[in-house]
């Protein structure tokens, strides 16, 4: 039996890594992949809570999260493809129409 704290720590580490990706990467596809990593941090946390509290909700939320992640990836990637087709650019710092 692994203590709950370990799972929380793992989740936080994953979250922070994903966050770093979102904050610093230029490539829009890796940006989206980093979002997936953040999602996975949540999955770890919910599954661990469910496992330790003997409550089914966490598992079900994981299930919904996976569905949401799929939806999010679908929309995000189609937007990325659209951007690439229109502008031939995938680097977010080059797409600055809204520069003040």
């Amino acid at each position: 039996m692994v203590p709950f704290e370990y799972y929380v720590t793992l989740s936080l580490i994953l979250f922070v890594i994903g966050l770093a990706g979102v904050l610093f990467r230029r490539n829009i596809i890796i940006l989206l992949a980093s979002l997936e990593i953040i999602m996975n941090a949540l999955i770890v946390l919910f599954a661990a809570i469910s496992f330790h509290a003997k409550d089914i909700s966490g598992y079900l939320i994981v299930f919904f999260l996976i569905g949401m992640a799929a939806a999010e990836a679908g929309v995000g990637l189609s937007l990325a493809v659209l951007l690439y087709k229109k502008l031939k650019k995938v680097y977010v710092d080059e797409i600055n129409f809204y520069r003040g």
């Binding site: 509290a53 003997k54 409550d55």
Partner: peptide, 14 residues
């Protein structure tokens, strides 16, 4: 947050 885990009261127990 780390201390929360076992304190959860199961709402939908299995």
């Amino acid at each position: 947050l780390t201390a929360l885990g076992p304190a959860f009261k199961a709402q939908l127990p299995y």
